[in-house]
């Protein structure tokens, strides 16, 4: 102990130097959690799950008390909407089978294949205010790996960046380090959806590198494009809220309003087996 007190400064400097080296070695290359991290996760994540569930329970009770009066009217509205959607769904299913038949006839593979999905739950969020990283309660034991894609029932949420045995670390599309190759559904104009810090708290993101000649408009639907290794094509991201021309005049950028409400996320779907399926299709 005396040794420590005497050489405090040297020890501090040595630790700082070692940490700086470790930062550069480990930066961005880790896709699998080490044994120690997995073991820690095994202890910590169940408690996080518990506290999140308790928090959610209280939150839902408070919401219930607050919205008690509106529930009846909302229920009626939703029933009407369900009837409408069911009719629409039937029509679309007919289109789907027709599409399948026609593409079989033409011998082209389906553009938007079905994927295996796993349900999962968010158990913790980044403790700082800068980033939008969260933990989900499934990991390698359930077959999840880095670069698998997370969606909610409405649209794209993010991707897994690191997986431990019983938990995974995921990056949302609002995070300023995330970028998703995307296109507009109507005009097929390409771009990249990036998170931006100043838009993160209002739940918006930004689509960059749109050609200045592109005919993209407000209200257009944005989906993931075919250009990505990670994201399968055709997953809905959001709607264009605003379009501006960049200062250089060569490209445009758009403010995107995601379909997903990032403040009230709870259960998610993990899309897996993407690469395997695609390669199988190609082999066939």
């Amino acid at each position: 102990m005396e040794f420590f007190e005497e050489h405090k400064k040297q020890i501090m400097l040595a630790t700082i130097a070692i940490l700086i080296v470790v930062i550069f070695i480990t930066y961005g290359r880790k896709t699998k959690a080490t044994f120690v991290e997995s073991a820690l996760g095994f202890v910590i994540t169940p408690v996080q799950e518990l506290t999140t569930n308790v928090g959610n329970w209280f939150g839902s009770k408070i919401d219930w008390v607050r919205n008690k009066d509106n529930l009846a009217t909302e229920n009626e509205q939703l029933k009407e909407q369900i009837a409408l959607l069911e009719a629409e769904n039937k029509r679309l299913r007919k289109y789907g089978t027709e599409n399948q038949r026609l593409s079989e006839l033409l011998k082209i593979s389906q553009k938007y294949a079905d994927y295996h999905t796993t349900g999962t739950q968010i158990i913790a969020k980044d403790p700082g205010n800068w980033y939008d990283v969260f933990l989900i309660n499934k990991g390698r034991d359930d077959g999840l790996e880095a670069n698998m894609v997370l969606t909610s029932s409405n649209g794209l949420v993010g991707k897994i960046i690191e997986s431990g045995d019983t938990y995974s670390k995921a990056l949302s599309i609002l995070d300023s380090r995330s970028s998703v190759p995307a296109m507009s559904q109507r005009t097929e104009d390409l771009g990249v959806v990036k998170g931006e810090y100043s838009l993160m708290n209002s739940g918006l993101c930004r689509m960059e590198y749109i050609d200045s000649e592109a005919e993209i408009m407000e209200g257009d639907e944005i989906v993931t494009s075919h250009l990505s290794d990670v994201y399968p094509p055709g997953i809905a991201i959001g709607r264009v809220k605003e379009i501006r021309t960049e200062a250089n005049g060569l490209t445009k950028y758009a403010i995107i309003e995601p379909y997903v409400d990032f403040k009230h996320l709870d259960t998610l779907l993990v899309i897996g087996d993407i690469l395997q399926q695609n390669t199988q299709e190609e082999a066939q």
């Binding site: 940490l19 470790v22 480990t26 930066y27 880790k30 959690a33 910590i44």
Partner: peptide, 22 residues
């Protein structure tokens, strides 16, 4: 802890927190 569960590299927040504490 923060680096293991939410960071992209080990040591980033560790470094800042150590310096703050010291």
């Amino acid at each position: 802890l923060q680096d293991i569960f939410f960071g992209t590299s080990i040591g980033y927040f560790t470094l800042f927190n150590i310096i703050t504490g010291y």
